[in-house]
């Protein structure tokens, strides 16, 4: 479980952002996590209360949006979901792709009061 360390980093970034933009109260933090990133949404949610404890984000809500892990087949140019297809192009049955998205881990937005 390495999520805690990473979420502490997220909290720091959001606090910096809030200070710079004169935001004093945050209601919700919205994160975007790619299906292929090494962050597991369930664990992120589990460690969130510990990471925000004693920070400006204490008592805020966490919302996670999942981004799909998509690939482009190098042979036929079909776009397909890596997890659903186990990395194999459903068109030509080969595993030779370029990663398009899915490794993201982003702070999308905050909802401030």
């Amino acid at each position: 479980m390495h999520e805690l360390g990473v979420i502490i980093e997220v909290v720091k970034t959001v606090e910096d952002f809030a200070i710079k933009n004169n935001i004093t109260k945050i209601d919700t933090l919205v994160l975007q996590i790619g299906e292929l990133s090494a962050m597991i949404p369930r664990y992120v949610e589990a460690c969130y209360p510990a990471a925000v404890d004693g920070t400006m984000l204490q008592d805020t809500k966490l919302k996670i949006e999942i981004l799909p892990g998509n690939a482009l087949c190098r042979k036929c140019n079909k776009v397909f979901n890596i997890i659903e297809n186990k990395g194999i192009c459903p068109n030509c049955n080969i595993k030779d792709y370029e990663l398009l998205c899915g490794r993201e881990f982003k702070i999308k937005e905050i909802i401030a009061c």
Partner: peptide, 16 residues
């Protein structure tokens, strides 16, 4: 309450 959505769109690893 009136809520305001503020876009950050920053990769978590950007700071690092």
């Amino acid at each position: 309450n009136t809520y305001k959505i503020i876009e950050i769109k920053q990769s978590v690893f950007e700071n690092n």
